[in-house]
Simulated scan of single mutants.
Amino acid sequence: MTIAQPPVGDNLRERKKQHTRRAIHESALELVDENGLDGTTIEQICQRADVSQRTFFNYYPSKGAAALGLPETAISPETIAQFRQATGDLVPALCELVGEPADERLDRIRLKEVIHRRPELMPAFSQWMSGVREQFVQLAEERSGSRETALLAVTLVMAAFGLVVHDQSQNDAPAVDRLKEAVDRIAGVRTVKMVPPK
């Protein structure tokens, strides 16, 4: 059996898109490192990347997203299909849904370094994450049959994701494993006893 290859033109077009995306990201990151987020304009990024502002907004919604190199789509169709076919408990499946794209589409180490160096970029990251949160909720609701359960489960996993992103250790385990560990740590707080007052 032979597998149909995409037309050469499609490959070239995709390579050009990736080149443009990378050029915008690198230009934005350099400028933000040099001048800070407030001291950088989209016009400056476009000039350095040699693209129009219209092209910029085809790839990124903001200069913060460009500096962080956040992908257009947080969840691939393949990952969504895997989640819809998954069996077992909801929260571990959500960790897979959130964690696998994080490994595939985000350079986690570089992302943490950039946010540590430029904490003013954290709101851009948070805004990006909130933009995909509803998609996670909708998928979780499909599998749980309950909007409330979906909201609670996604809230737990997203809180764990926040811990993973802010973790300053050199732990380079897969994001899925780190997410599951963070979920357990959050759940474990419920049983912590208070220290008696002195």
Rank of each mutant, 00 (worst) to 15 (best):
T2F: 06
I3R: 09
I3K: 05
A4S: 13
Q5W: 08
D10M: 12
N11V: 11
E14Y: 00
H19A: 14
H19S: 14
R21W: 14
H25K: 08
S27E: 08
S27Q: 03
A28T: 02
L29A: 09
T40R: 01
T41D: 06
E43P: 08
Q44E: 15
I45S: 10
R48T: 01
A49V: 00
D50N: 13
R54A: 13
T55H: 10
F56P: 02
K63V: 08
P71G: 01
Q82D: 05
Q82N: 04
F83K: 11
D89C: 04
L90Y: 05
P92S: 02
L94Y: 03
V98K: 00
V98A: 06
L106T: 12
I109Q: 13
K112G: 15
H116K: 13
R117L: 09
R117A: 15
M129H: 04
S130G: 06
G131D: 05
F136L: 11
E141V: 12
E142V: 10
R147I: 10
A150P: 11
L152M: 12
A153T: 11
A153R: 02
V154W: 00
T155P: 00
G162K: 03
N171Y: 00
V176E: 06
D177N: 13
V183S: 03
I186L: 14
I186V: 07
R190T: 03
R190Y: 06
T191G: 02
V192T: 08
V195H: 06
K198C: 09
K198H: 14
